[in-house]
Design a protein around this nucleic acid. Structure first.
Lengths: 270, 270
DNA sequence: CGTGAACTTGACCACTGTCAACTTAAGTGG
DNA sequence: CCACTTAAGTTGACAGTGGTCAAGTTCACG
């Protein structure tokens, strides 16, 4: 109880009071993410750290960062907060197709493809750094290792999308929701915001519904079942997974698709 | 396993019977695909054409090219035939997460990520060219335009995956199946195997079910409804869409996500 | 305290899955 | 050429997962 209260305060400070990331650099979340997954040389790290002073700005929660059809002119790096990629059908149904966590790029692909094929929405208040394409261009030319790491991050995103397709197509509501919670928990660990068995979790049941292709009513029913079984506690924006292994088991979770701690081939081209 | 024998020129009877064009060279499908979508310079084209004599081999229909967990050592280019990417749940349900058409690479991402996070299965008999990573490496170093085109192809694949997520999560069985048929029809046009309103279509109703997250029984029922409405005729592996615009309408199809005929930013980095 | 967003629950039901039997098509060997 | 075999397609009866609708309650915040 005491712990939960402390975390809640920490969450508020982190997500809603801007200025959390002031003392640190805007680039730290990115470095941390690349570090845990890939092999950056000292020179690569140093080059990245030179971006530390990059200007960042805040985005209000529940606002759109980009819309389908936009042509992005900057490459935006999420420094703090949660965002999501989503698409809508002509008749207005929304599907969240991915979550963007600190250290992820927002419109990396939109830049190469000239138009966004999906929208990006802020879940919480966001802190976003804008990087000019030329800057990133120069960086990857001088440091192929960084370019490779960034591309591998894109490929991991594609892998996660494939796992979501498996979830939406073949898993039951119960497995689907459990799988998503485990995935987010695992990904959050690499950003260092998980304490033991719980973490800040700003998604509403409606967000979870849009991500799993369920209705919020059914998400609610499913969460109740998880709660009764002692597998998930989700209350006041705090997610607690008291039995992570058990939850992984019932949701058919295998972390291989996240490609964590995986070395790429040494001779890989950029 | 290197047991499979290399066959240089044999094109399967089945492929001819299905009405597929005979490939002049192993690299033509790739050039055609890159050409229709992106801007290749004359030098880029020439460099690609120098790969024309690359050895290709045939794969039996319904065999796996790769399995989840494999570490691919070649980059394989599909020259002729249809393949699919798929994943399975622990309890054996299969979800097709994408189709690989002539001119597509099979294990581009698997190479950079060291392990396949999904399997690749042959739908028809395949003709596949194996390209050594070093060869492709040298190619993209000498011709950044090719590298950019290849990466944009990967990003288009990711975009298609997102559209599938929208389908699986938010569209009805009817819309979902119609949407998939239109998508495949559009993509096949860029490979030049579509005649007016029909084309060879080797997918079984079971394949369609695994791709749409439905059962084959329900795919059958839905196809019947399309047939009665004069929107789809699918018989003996020939797909006919007599009213493409009508089918697009009822399935909520908007081709923007395929990023066809889209120019990227001129200053894009590789 | 008041207000709105988020959450919760129950009653009802439809879209799609399951099961099973049958038909048709395509290939195989005698 | 035909009988046999097997995969693919077709249909009906029935069931269940998850959606819809509607009425609450709780919570966060001004």
């Amino acid at each position: 109880m005491m712990i939960l209260t402390w975390v809640r305060l920490a969450v508020s400070r982190r997500c809603y009071a801007s200025g959390w990331s002031q003392p640190q650099s805007v680039i730290m979340p990115l470095i941390r993410r690349l570090d845990t997954c890939f092999d950056l040389s000292q020179a690569d790290r140093a080059a990245l750290e030179r971006l530390a002073g990059f200007p960042a700005r805040d985005i209000e929660p529940r606002r759109d960062l980009a819309r389908e059809g936009d042509t992005p002119h900057h490459i935006r790096l999420l420094v703090d907060g949660w965002a999501c990629r989503y698409k809508t059908t002509p008749d207005g149904h929304r599907q969240i197709v991915g979550f963007i966590l600190p250290g992820d790029f927002c419109d990396f692909s939109g830049h190469l493809l000239s138009r966004m094929d999906h929208s990006i929405g802020a879940i919480t208040r966001l802190r976003v750094a804008q990087i000019a394409p030329e800057t990133l261009d120069a960086l990857v030319v001088d440091h192929p290792g960084i370019g490779r790491a960034l591309w591998r991050r894109e490929l991991v995103s594609a892998s996660i999308q494939r796992e979501w397709l498996l979830s939406l197509g073949q898993r039951s509501a119960y497995e689907r929701l459990g799988h998503l919670l485990v995935e987010l928990f695992c990904r959050l660990r690499t950003t260092g915001v998980v304490n033991h068995d719980h973490c800040a979790f700003p998604l509403t049941q409606n967000d979870l519904a849009d991500a799993t292709g369920l209705t919020s009513v059914h998400v609610n029913r499913t969460l109740r079942e998880f709660r009764l079984q002692g597998l998930v506690e989700l209350d006041r924006r705090i997610l607690r997974l008291p039995d992570l292994d058990g939850l992984m088991k019932v949701s058919g979770f295998n972390s291989a698709y996240l490609h964590v701690d995986e070395e790429g081939p040494v001779d890989a081209y950029v």
